[in-house]
Design a protein around this nucleic acid. Structure first.
Lengths: 110, 110
DNA sequence: TATAATACCTAGAGTTACTATGTATGTCAA
DNA sequence: TTGACATACATAGTAACTCTAGGTATTATA
C-alpha cells in the first residue's frame, strides 16, 4: 500500500464491490485492477482480499463460480442485487465522509 | 459517528492535528469542533480522542499544559514543529488516497 | 436540587488490514 | 528441461484503530 493502511479501512469492501459492479472478476484480477486504476496507490494484499470476498459472499453481496481458463481453474465473483444496493449506499457514505474531511481540512475562519 | 467507523480509521489523527495547527484546544473542545465543522458527520468519542492525544504527545507531535478557566482546570494541547510536519505529510497522503478512491469509483471504460 | 453539560480518563471488545506462510499450476528463458 | 517468476487461492496470527462502557468530578440550568 502506497498510503497508510489506516486509510484503507472501510474502503476496501466498497472498492471490491465497485469493480464487481462492472463485471465478474477473479481474486488475483481484482488486485491487479485496483493497482492499475489507482496508479499504484492501492496494492491490496491477498491476505486482505480473500477474507473480504468470503465475507461478502457469506453476506449475500456477491456469489462465486469456478471457471476453467487455459487449464487453470479460476474462481470468479459476481455482484448480487443486494450487493449493488449496499454498494450504492457505501458510495454515498464515502462522499459524505470524504467531503467532511475536506471541509475540516480546508476550513477558513469561523 | 454518522458514517461507518471504518472510514475514520487513520483520519482521526490527522483531523486532530489539523485543528491543533490553528490554535490550542482542550479535548472536549476538539470533539465539539469536529462535530460542528463536519456538519455532524464526525462525532468522535472520548474513548477515541484521549488515547489519540496521549499517543501524539508521547510521539512528540503535540504538547499539553493545564489552564484554569472559570474555576475549572482544562488540559490544553498544542502542536509541535514535528507535529506540523507530520500533519503536512498526512494531508498529502489523504489527497493521494481519496483521489485514488474517486478514480476507481468513477472509472469509465479502459 | 436534580439533571444535563462539561471535562478528563481507562479497560476491554470488535473490526480490519497486514505479514507470513502454504499449496499448486502456467510460462518463459537459459 | 529446469529453474525462476507470475499466477491463483487460502489461512493463521499480529498490530492498529475505534467503539462501548464504565468511572470520577465540576459547572450550569431548570
Amino acid at each position: 500500500m502506497a498510503v497508510d493502511k489506516g486509510y484503507m479501512s472501510g474502503s476496501s469492501q466498497m472498492l471490491v464491490l465497485n469493480l464487481l459492479n462492472e463485471k465478474s472478476y477473479y481474486g488475483y484480477e481484482l488486485i491487479k485492477t485496483l493497482k492499475l486504476r489507482s496508479n499504484d496507490v492501492f496494492d491490496m494484499k491477498e491476505g486482505t482480499l480473500y477474507p473480504i470476498l468470503h465475507k461478502l459472499e457469506n453476506e449475500g453481496m456477491i456469489h462465486s463460480f469456478n471457471q476453467e481458463v487455459s487449464g487453470r481453474t479460476r474462481r470468479y465473483y459476481a455482484i448480487t442485487d443486494k450487493g449493488a444496493k449496499v454498494l450504492a449506499k457505501q458510495k454515498e457514505e464515502w462522499l459524505q465522509f470524504s467531503g467532511a474531511v475536506n471541509q475540516v481540512l480546508t476550513f477558513q475562519g469561523v
